[in-house]
């Protein structure tokens, strides 16, 4: 840790770049959380932080500690895997709760499941499941 000054210039620049990229994207995600105007839009913006926001910081960390310790330090990969695997769980909880509330309040912006399906089935190439009941 105390040998940070020994880092070659190109590695230091790359680590700095990755850290700025990652934290910058996370900040943008947070700004979006404030600026966007509906719940379903706001839900998209933290994804910046959970993908390249996290990714940039983790890549920077991997490069920095691998250079300092002189061996590959890769356990940051686990953080990336667990963040990716757990994000859908919280997102689905939030989205389902919002959907339930909006449907109970009969919010016109949120169509019912059937309405969306019918509207989309006009556009989507018709598969075997549209129209006839499927035997299973």
């Amino acid at each position: 840790m105390s040998h940070a000054a020994d880092l070659p210039l190109w590695a230091a620049l790359l680590v700095a770049l990755l850290l700025v990229l990652g934290s910058g994207l996370t900040l943008l995600g947070a700004i979006g959380l404030v600026r966007l105007d509906s719940f379903y839009k706001r839900v998209h913006s933290p994804t910046l932080g959970t993908t390249w926001g996290t990714g940039g910081i983790l890549l920077g960390s991997m490069l920095f500690f691998s250079m300092i310790e002189g061996r590959p330090v890769l356990h940051e990969l686990l953080i990336a895997v667990f963040v990716t695997v757990t994000t859908p769980v919280t997102l689905m909880l939030l989205a389902r709760a919002a959907l339930y509330r909006d449907r109970m309040e009969k919010n016109p912006e949120v169509p019912t499941f059937v309405a969306v399906a019918e509207r989309s089935s006009e556009v989507v190439v018709k598969g075997t499941k549209n129209g006839e009941p499927e035997k299973s």
Partner: peptide
Amino acid sequence: LACIITSTPGTAWVEYRSADDL
């Protein structure tokens, strides 16, 4: 598929009904 759709900024998995495969 849920992980992919969620991890891609701009798309969010909202609801899946296995009865309708929708």
